[in-house]
């Protein structure tokens, strides 16, 4: 009996620790795998020219990722600009001004929306946003647009990220001690003033982190963006033009990548780049959140 228990203890103990180590080493394994696949590319081109060159001709062996990086950045920044006021004000309203009833109803709804697959948001983008941009937004600026544009991508991404960011903000604002707010109110501050000085200023690192994580999510989002952004290789500052973000590049070309030399290395380099950028973002902002939680 004792022996059986000991063996059970050893085996399950080993199982537990190996599982944990496997999961924790995942980013390292993924990173190394992608890097090894991308390594042949570095013999041909320098790291710098890979990122900042805009010459994209896979059949000639020219891989400049700038159009894709710029496309990704543009869409992400645009979505950030849309989410910034909406999420912050909505989170403030829901946690500070509204009735308890509303937030009780809203919280599960937001949760569900955050769990909707991105392809659903893409379908919605094609149904509503793309025609909206081509029919109503483009004529305002006296241009024509197919609607498959950076602007559409930014809007769809923003809508996708809103539940995600809002969820984090509500959680952060709910941790503000009631006494702190009451102290501010009793000193004669208006409700808005106490929100401004106590809720926002006191949670500043948390707010930054929520948005940082939102940006990281938007940067790596694939299917929804790819469906509405047009996927044309060029660098343009006009938001009504099409763009070609990094994740869309990987997703669209996996079919051909084995038939053109170095193409697979280039796409794996793109995936490696995404991994590194997003992991760094996540590390920084998660650290801020963990630190504020412990206080």
């Amino acid at each position: 009996m004792q022996l059986r228990r000991k063996i059970f203890d050893k085996i399950t103990g080993f199982w537990m620790i190996t599982s944990l180590i496997t999961i924790l080493s995942l980013p390292l394994i993924i990173g190394t795998g992608l890097y090894l696949k991308a390594a042949p590319l570095f013999d041909q081109q320098s790291f710098f020219s890979l990122i900042f060159s805009s010459q994209w001709a896979p059949s000639k062996g020219e891989f400049g990722f700038w159009p894709f990086i710029a496309g990704s950045l543009y869409v992400t920044v645009l979505s950030f600009l849309f989410t910034l006021p909406v999420c912050l004000l909505a989170a403030i309203y829901l946690t500070q001004f509204s009735s308890k009833q509303l937030i009780k109803v809203m919280h599960p709804v937001i949760d569900v929306l955050a769990g909707l697959p991105s392809v659903i948001y893409g379908v919605w983008g094609i149904l509503i946003i793309v025609p909206f941009v081509s029919k109503y937004v483009a004529p305002v600026f006296n241009t024509t647009s197919s609607g498959y544009s950076v602007l559409s991508g930014g809007i769809v991404l923003a809508v996708m990220c809103i539940p995600y960011i809002l969820n984090m903000l509500i959680e952060i604002f709910n941790t503000v001690p009631v006494g702190l707010r009451e102290a501010s109110l009793s000193l004669g501050a208006t409700r808005w003033e106490s929100v401004k000085h106590v809720v926002i200023r006191g949670n500043f690192p948390g707010i930054i982190s929520a948005y940082g994580l939102g940006i990281a999510k938007a940067f790596g989002e694939t299917i929804a963006v790819m469906m509405v952004v047009g996927n044309v290789v060029k660098v343009s500052i006009n938001p009504l033009d099409a763009a070609y973000p990094l994740p869309a590049l990987i997703a669209n070309n996996y079919g051909e990548m084995l038939s053109i030399p170095m193409y697979d290395a280039a796409l794996m380099f793109a995936a490696f780049l995404l991994l590194v950028i997003i992991l760094i973002f996540n590390m920084i902002f998660r650290y801020l959140i963990h630190k504020t939680k412990r206080q």
């Binding site: 999961i23 995942l26 980013p27 999510k217 796409l267 995936a271 997003i278 996540n282 998660r286």
Partner: peptide, 24 residues
């Protein structure tokens, strides 16, 4: 806490990266 922190960061890796890694 350190392990939780790494797991949270891992959560943020986009699925396309997993897809590309799965492919390799």
């Amino acid at each position: 806490n350190t392990i939780r922190y790494f797991l949270d960061a891992l959560w943020g890796i986009p699925s396309i990266v997993y897809g590309a890694f799965g492919f390799t």
